[in-house]
Design a protein around this nucleic acid. Sequence first.
DNA 1: GAGTGGTCTAGACCACTGC
DNA 2: CAGTGGTCTAGACCACTCG
Lengths: 242, 242
Amino acid sequence: MAQESPTFSPLYRQIKNLMLQALEDGEWGPGDVIPSETELALRFSVSQGTVRKAVDELAADNLLLRRQGKGTFVASHDDPRAFFRFLRLVALNGEIGPSRSVPLECWRAKAGQEAARVLGIPLADPIIVVRRLLEFSGEPVVLDEIYLPGNTFSGISIEELKAWQGSLYSLFESRYGVRMIRAEERLRAVAADRTGAKLLKVAEGSPLLSVERVSFSYGDRPMEWRRGLYSTANHAYVNQLG
Amino acid sequence: MAQESPTFSPLYRQIKNLMLQALEDGEWGPGDVIPSETELALRFSVSQGTVRKAVDELAADNLLLRRQGKGTFVASHDDPRAFFRFLRLVALNGEIGPSRSVPLECWRAKAGQEAARVLGIPLADPIIVVRRLLEFSGEPVVLDEIYLPGNTFSGISIEELKAWQGSLYSLFESRYGVRMIRAEERLRAVAADRTGAKLLKVAEGSPLLSVERVSFSYGDRPMEWRRGLYSTANHAYVNQLG
DNA sequence: GAGTGGTCTAGACCACTGC
DNA sequence: CAGTGGTCTAGACCACTCG
């Protein structure tokens, strides 16, 4: 027999996609309350239980945040308690100390072959490169080199970076309307080169953790390519498996 | 007003706990089909929807595996498609090749302070230490040193390890009834010592990825402490954030 | 066709928040 | 108190698997 519905998609998944569209379109902005489940059920002409399942998935994807008695909110990088922090560092002894981001450089360039491929933009398109240092308790721990598509982040500058209080993703979200949804990382151990060693205050050639990350916005569009060098003398990268 | 139910636990969570107990007791073994949702609903005197929600969570925890039209199965490390594989390695160029585990040593010891703490056993309790090499496409990539509580894994030997075809977790599950549920990892970059360098065929002092892992069985009981040294010359440790 | 998990509904009631 | 998300139910029907 012929398959009746080869691309069967349950109702709640269709509702989820409609809501994703509303999020992407900015109908509901970061931090906003979205309409209640009963309102959404009316709007989409489905039962409240079906809306619920769509919201469940969006909440599981960390795009929405439910708060009993209050409502459902659009996740925001501004809200530290809600949105995932991509940084997976812990101090070897005790909790992680106060952090500070120190922007070092910010310059324009043209996308080379690898940057174009990773960011999904044409070769020689404008890109922006940012170098910055992350400190914990005053000690340099992470040296980041960040590649951004220049057309989207055209206004970014070293002054803006230095003035910004908060995470980079918070800046991207607030100023450039780019919300990072998920990221993929590849970790390797490498030897510190001259400049890396100097900035991280370790000996040249000493082992560093190299963390290459691609961050994606809505629709799995890559919006950031980042390479971090982590000094793991006093910190470790933690991961949960299961 | 006084809180009516300070330790409120929804019905489906209680059902989940009952099912967890059944799993832990071995009433349903790895690979088995568990009773259908309607049967479970009868057994626990709740509606099918409530059972469903309990099963949903157990499936999300990777303890159960749903297969539409067939039934719900207990996840097993023997089933490569179902149970999470803890190994997060990819080849830098292309997919990962055929792997082989090469047991090097297996000896008895008494738990030192750190092993006792991590494994949650008394000081000087018997432990078993295993060293093994993991090869991909014939190249040594991971050197593991594994610490196991001796009382649980008393029968393990180098001969058994060499004879076993399959993953270590599969062995633990089949022969010792220990099913690993989740694990925590801490990653750092370290310099290769003499023996590590020799076994992994890299230069002494070259950077290696150190992966320290604690694996937990039911009830969050730690059952394995493992330290792996990964050669990341041709491979990377991948991670999904989101 | 029988049995399984998967979806959807409508309605009742509970727990939490804030006015 | 009203409004929100959270739980639970009972029942109908759909999609998938297998004999």
